[in-house]
């Protein structure tokens, strides 16, 4: 009785995500690939992979949403709020650190968007910041948290501009600072930038994190520290937007 009911597609700037859900919004199957410029082909591939019955309604979100043949298109902000609410069941502040955008959404009862803010046009407060610099330090993604955990004395990284921070990191390495301490410092720098987007957290508010960067426990910890409140990760953080899109196609 809870068979496939709708599909959600999140055609983001760095990754393409799709989910198949049942009436209750439970994820039955999912699909995740780096974003492909041939979006239509990627969408077809995703539908195949999800093995959805023909005629299943599709909801789409993300930068490429208009190129997806969908019954409903909505922005990532609305979809993340709905997706997150369906997994957590709680209003609160949702922080989505994506590859190109960082969004802070105040989610109200029922998953409504009360208000939101986004980073300005540079990569300073986004996942790209860490990606670029950690690649420079030749640290594989899966090692990041371990590096940060080993730090005993984080080195402050003052530049929040990605380009400036990259050269700052190079000079920190040249100065002989431990890579672990630099990694930890980078997390703190990004967390501080994201925190300025979050603003004051009202007492008693829950803070949730979604998006690919939420899979990095060091980042979750850094943000918790910066905001002085515990930050919880929405289950399957990368799929939250796609889930919200699927839920929108249901209604």
């Amino acid at each position: 009785m809870s068979g496939p009911a709708s599909i959600g597609v999140d055609a983001g700037s760095t990754t393409f995500k799709a989910v198949l859900v049942d009436r209750e919004g439970r994820i039955l199957a999912s699909f995740l690939e780096p974003a492909d410029p041939r979006l239509e082909e990627q969408a077809a591939r995703a539908l195949d992979a999800l093995q959805a019955p023909p005629g299943t309604p599709v909801g789409a979100t993300g930068y490429g949403r208009r190129r997806i043949h969908a019954a409903r298109t909505l922005t990532e902000i609305t979809c993340h709020a709905r997706g997150a609410f369906s997994r957590t069941g709680e209003p609160g502040i949702l922080v989505d650190v994506g590859g190109q955008d960082t969004k802070v959404v105040r989610v109200g009862p029922g998953g409504a968007v009360l208000d939101f803010s986004m980073n300005d046009k540079c990569a300073a407060g986004t996942g790209r910041f860490l990606e670029v610099i950690l690649a420079r330090l030749r640290i594989p993604k899966e090692e990041i948290a371990r590096y940060a955990a080993r730090s005993t004395r984080p080195v402050p990284v003052t530049s929040t501009c990605t380009v400036f921070a990259e050269s700052e990191v190079v000079s920190l390495v040249a100065r002989g600072e431990a890579v672990e301490d630099i990694v930890k410092g980078l997390h703190a720098a990004l967390a501080s930038r994201v925190a300025s987007l979050v603003g004051q957290v009202p007492p008693g508010s829950r803070v949730f994190m979604s998006g690919g960067v939420a899979l990095n426990p060091a980042m979750v910890e850094a943000l918790s520290k910066e905001l002085s409140v515990p930050v919880s990760v929405v289950p399957d953080p990368q799929l939250v937007g796609a889930l919200g899109a699927a839920l929108s196609a249901l209604s």
């Binding site: 909505l74 190109q100 968007v113 009360l114 939101f116």
Partner: peptide
């Protein structure tokens, strides 16, 4: 208008509509 700005405007209107 950049895609990013358009998303902001649309999301804002969506948030008002559903409220």
């Amino acid at each position: 208008l950049s895609a990013q700005s358009a998303t902001r405007l649309e999301a804002f209107v969506e948030s008002l509509k559903f409220k």
